[in-house]
Simulated assay, not measured.
Amino acid sequence: MGLSLIEGFTKSLAMTVLSEIGDKTFFAAAILAMRHPRKLVLAGCLASLIVMTILSASLGWVAPNLISRKWSHHVTTVLFFGFGLWSLWEGFKEESESEELAEVEAKLNADWKAETGSNKVNTKGSDDLKKQQRPFLTQFFSPIFLKAFSITFFGEWGDKSQIATIGLASDENPFGVVLGGIIGQALCTTAAVIGGKSLASQISEKMVALSSGILFLVFGVQSFLSAAGES
């Protein structure tokens, strides 16, 4: 079982980049960056993804202590094959490639209209009162930072990339998985924030899904062969 830092790093980096490009959180970061200061959006999204990566890798690191390493390895192998087939199915099924982008944009547009509508009703006097009654966290963090953080965090929770990170960290060096995951998330999120909607709309979700499916299957075969070689 490969526990080297380099192997965990490279697997995590490749998996993260292919999983996050064209993901809902990628589109959300791109759209938010068009309406709010890029620095705040980038900081909020990255902070959320770093927390999520560390949390997922920690769960994967703890897993072998809860169940035997042999069984955690088998579960990881099944996950890789499962996610590989799932991604290939998503790539081959006939759906519009812009469907996910349109879905995210519609949701953020609804939130945006609700926010601007409520802001028009407020007067200057009520703004000062509202500022005093603002929740504790927003006294220290910008509401835009918190919005980007929360949208990204809950968008990633339970996503296949999170579960795959847990499985990868249980089978590889968790520090390498964290480092590769953070760098991969930083690359994808920075591209989304800087490139904006134009970049997001040009991404072929089909090719990304097929590429990530092949990568997961390669990881699955490698994991299966390493298990067979140990027996």
Rank of each mutant, 00 (worst) to 15 (best):
M1N: 08
G8N: 08
F9T: 07
T10Q: 05
L13P: 05
M15N: 06
V17M: 06
L18P: 00
S19Q: 12
G22M: 04
D23K: 06
D23Q: 09
I31M: 14
I31Q: 12
R38F: 10
K39F: 07
K39C: 05
K39N: 09
L42R: 05
C45N: 15
I50F: 01
I50L: 06
M52C: 09
M52G: 10
S56I: 14
A57M: 10
P64K: 10
N65F: 09
S68F: 13
R69H: 10
K70Q: 12
L79S: 13
L85E: 14
W86Q: 12
S87I: 05
L88G: 10
L88T: 11
E90Q: 15
F92K: 13
F92Y: 02
F92S: 08
S96T: 01
E99L: 02
A102H: 04
E103C: 08
A106W: 09
A106V: 06
D111E: 13
D111P: 12
A114S: 09
A114C: 05
T116P: 00
G117T: 02
K120N: 05
N122A: 14
T123A: 13
G125T: 04
D128W: 11
Q133H: 12
L137P: 04
T138V: 07
Q139D: 12
F141W: 01
F145V: 02
L146W: 01
L146F: 00
K147E: 04
A148Y: 15
F149A: 07
S150T: 03
I151Y: 00
G155M: 06
G155Y: 08
I163V: 15
A164I: 06
I166S: 04
I166M: 02
L168F: 03
L168G: 09
A169K: 00
F175Q: 00
L179W: 06
G180P: 04
G184N: 11
Q185I: 03
A186L: 03
T189K: 03
T189L: 04
T190M: 09
A191H: 05
V193S: 08
V193H: 08
V193Q: 08
G196H: 01
G196K: 02
K197H: 03
L199H: 10
S201M: 02
Q202K: 06
I203C: 15
S204Y: 00
E205K: 14
K206Q: 02
M207V: 00
V208L: 05
A209N: 02
L210D: 13
S211G: 04
I214N: 12
L217C: 12
V218W: 03
V221A: 03
Q222E: 15
L225R: 01
